[in-house]
């Protein structure tokens, strides 16, 4: 079983990112709860990717705080979370080596790396592709590899930036199944998507961004049934606005 003394909830306060005097992100307060499926929604350019990158610690904020419940050294916090990017990064190596590299970076020993890699590939239907160069895989297979690679690091918290964009329905369905498996295992998920169907089916909590601002955080039911803000209403009715 995984460690129950989780880092979560993660509490974000007065988070701001400014660049050249422009406010790119403004989050007064957000809570990412343990073992929840969190979905970040918003139109293009709303700041979804930036929000994930700030929470994951890839981009330093201009102001504000990102705090974990149980204080831990930065290196441990880094090891307990992982991120899958909008455009999955595929190393110029075999599928297997993509796993073993990530595990090596996480400090896992040589034979243990190979064992975990084999186990994860088998679990997510990548075993037959183990020796194929990762960059010749199809888009769906690459996305699956990216998620499985992140999952092999056994994170408490996993960020996924548009894991199903540009995939056909079958491939998105496979990804959704993977996410369910991870959720069942106790991984807290934070993902962005443009797929409202996925958000409705999958999410426990919705974070809605507009123009770089977190304007609404609510449970899925109430977000879809009676959104509190005009921006969210307009977004759900597919009305153009800016």
């Amino acid at each position: 079983m995984r460690d129950t003394t989780s880092l979560l909830p993660l509490v974000v306060r007065d988070l701001r990112l400014e660049k050249d005097g422009r406010v790119l992100l403004d989050v007064p307060v957000a809570r990412i709860q343990n073992r929840k499926r969190n979905v970040v929604l918003g139109p293009n350019g709303a700041g979804k990717t930036l929000f994930l990158k700030l929470c994951h610690g890839l981009v330093p904020p201009t102001a504000g705080s990102i705090e974990y419940t149980s204080p831990r050294p930065a290196s441990e916090i880094r090891r307990r979370q992982a991120m899958v990017f909008q455009k999955p990064v595929m190393l110029r190596r075999s599928v297997r080596a993509n796993f073993t590299h990530a595990l090596a970076m996480a400090g896992v020993g040589w034979s243990e790396r190979r064992r975990i890699a084999a186990e994860t590939m088998a679990q997510f239907g990548l075993a037959s592709l183990a020796d194929v160069p990762a960059r010749v895989l199809s888009g769906g297979e690459q996305q699956r590899l990216a998620i499985a690679r992140a999952a092999s690091l056994n994170p408490d918290l996993l960020f996924l930036d548009e894991p199903t964009s540009s995939l056909d329905p079958t491939a998105s369905h496979q990804i959704e199944d993977m996410l369910e498996i991870l959720y069942e295992r106790g991984v807290t998920l934070v993902l962005t998507t443009h797929d409202l169907g996925l958000a409705r089916r999958f999410a426990d909590v919705i974070f809605f961004f507009h123009n770089g601002r977190l304007v609404e955080e609510s449970d899925t039911q109430s977000f879809f049934n009676n959104p509190k803000t005009v921006e969210a209403q307009a977004f759900l009715e597919h009305r153009l606005f800016w």
Binding site: L58, A82, M83, L91, R93
Partner: peptide, 27 residues
């Protein structure tokens, strides 16, 4: 520029990323 996010996410750091980058640029 292509690998930065992934390697940073893995906690490699700039200088720690050099071996990965040299190997992946081998050709």
């Amino acid at each position: 520029t292509e690998y930065q996010d992934h390697l940073t996410s893995l906690g490699a750091g700039r200088l720690g990323s050099i071996p990965t980058l040299l190997w992946d640029a081998r050709f």
